[in-house]
């Protein structure tokens, strides 16, 4: 399927979902006082129209993707997901050090010592700069670390 057709159908499906939720759950108000659901419903209908028009029109090519790129992209997304999951439980420094070490060692297969040094330097250094000096509140994990 061409890129535009696929994207158009996905957008139209999303739009249908938006419109359905808006109609089912949100108050529409009146013409003079549109309620909370009026804008989402309107936007859903417009988005659906655009999506169907794109699908009908077709055309558009996918950008080439090889297996190595896709695999790496998945690994990086997984690392970002891990960061989101562990951030407040493990604290900033431990989470970041683990994420960096994973990317450098498991994904990029870099030598162990420089990879660990770079991970430690980045996680501790950025914590020091932003949490200690600039007082951005960052989470601490077990034992206040």
């Amino acid at each position: 399927m061409s890129a535009d057709r696929a994207a158009g159908l996905v957008l139209a499906a999303l739009a249908a979902g938006i419109a359905a939720i808006a109609l089912a759950e949100l108050p529409m108000g009146s013409w003079a006082r549109p309620g909370a659901g009026a804008a989402p419903l309107g936007l859903g209908l417009i988005l659906g129209g655009f999506g169907l028009a794109l699908a009908w029109q077709g055309g558009g090519a996918w950008e080439a993707t090889d297996r190595a790129e896709a695999g790496r992209a998945l690994a990086i997304l997984a690392a970002a997901g891990f960061a989101a999951l562990a951030f407040e439980a493990l604290g900033y420094r431990l989470t970041m050090a683990a994420m960096l070490a994973f990317l450098l060692l498991a994904v990029e297969r870099k030598p162990v010592l420089p990879a660990l040094a770079w991970s430690a330097l980045l996680s501790l250094g950025s914590f020091h700069a932003f949490s200690v000096w600039l007082r951005v509140p960052l989470p601490r994990g077990p034992f206040g670390f």
Binding site: L124, F127, H128, V132
Partner: peptide
């Protein structure tokens, strides 16, 4: 590079 990294780590650990 590595020695510098260690120094930075120690400095960061010393503060809290």
């Amino acid at each position: 590079m590595i020695r510098f990294a260690f120094a930075a780590i120690l400095a960061a650990l010393a503060v809290p």
